[in-house]
Nucleic acid binder design. Structure first.
Lengths: 152, 152
DNA sequence: ATGAGTGCAAAGTATTTGCACGTAC
DNA sequence: GTACGTGCAAATACTTTGCACTCAT
């Protein structure tokens, strides 16, 4: 269980505003899903999340609604697709976190986050060179983590 | 039609060696696929490639063999997964090319390649900091390209 | 009240696999 | 000759969608 430093209630209030701006309804399911994702943990795959939620008799949200809401939460910005490896997509709950990139251990699957301002700056320079207007980016470095390296 | 500067025959000879090293057979299909991918063009999605190949009565290779061989070609290093966007995977024929990263226009789908040695160096530094042994990486910057920006 | 949201099951995509036949070695 | 590779069709995995019912406004 990971405790988030962010205020979930605050996120839900902001999400409600976001929905209203889009003339969409503020439903129980949509708000519940934020709680559920926060409780589930930081990184997740949709399928695992769906199965986990299915075991919780109290807070049922269906597979379709989960998929539909995840799209909204991505648009809202509280969730991001972070890793695309093989055919798996790993999402991340990023509320209140600065942008960061990832080191992915191909041995044990561990995901290490890092921030490097210089890399970000260089990316902006590259974009400027190509007259390209960046909206977001994804940097994944695959390899072997310290622990797996030690194990051989 | 993109003309490759690399020598396809040379690549096929090397791929044959690679297969022999793995005690696998050097088959017509496996070699043909290299020609077909080179002819098809630089960036491709498997499904499009499969459909295009299906139209060529002379050089048929089945969907299963294409999927199976693409894995081998990735392992061999002549093909890379470059973009993962939505549920599409775009592969790239990278023979004889230096490593590079991509700017992806979310408007028109155009892919611009760039190389930035400084970014690569900084990545190595990050890995060193985390005692992480990198094998490869993928950097995708999404945004609007110059032309689409001009169009509004 | 009414139109958007939900859950279900069915339909789509993309990819993998089991099996009988074909081919490289 | 024999094991590996291939093509086919079926299976799998993930995601989307049509529809009847429900709920937010």
């Amino acid at each position: 269980m990971v405790f988030m430093r962010v205020d979930l209630e605050e996120i839900k209030r902001e999400f409600a505003k976001f929905l209203k701006r889009k003339n969409m309804k503020v439903t129980q399911s949509r708000l519940k899903l934020i709680d559920l994702i926060a409780e589930y943990g930081k990184h997740f795959e949709v399928e695992d999340l769906v199965n986990w939620i299915a075991t919780r008799a109290d807070k049922n949200v269906s597979r379709s609604t989960i998929y539909r809401t995840i799209k909204l939460l991505q648009e809202f910005g509280v969730i991001k697709e972070v890793i695309k490896l093989n055919n798996r997509t790993i999402y991340e709950f990023v509320a209140g976190k600065a942008h960061h990139d990832h080191l992915v251990c191909t041995e044990c699957g561990k995901i290490i986050e890092f921030v490097n301002e210089d890399i970000e700056k260089l990316q902006d320079e590259v974009c400027a060179d190509y007259d390209f207007l960046p909206s977001h980016h994804r940097l994944e470095i695959f390899g072997i983590c310290s622990e797996c390296k030690a194990k051989g």
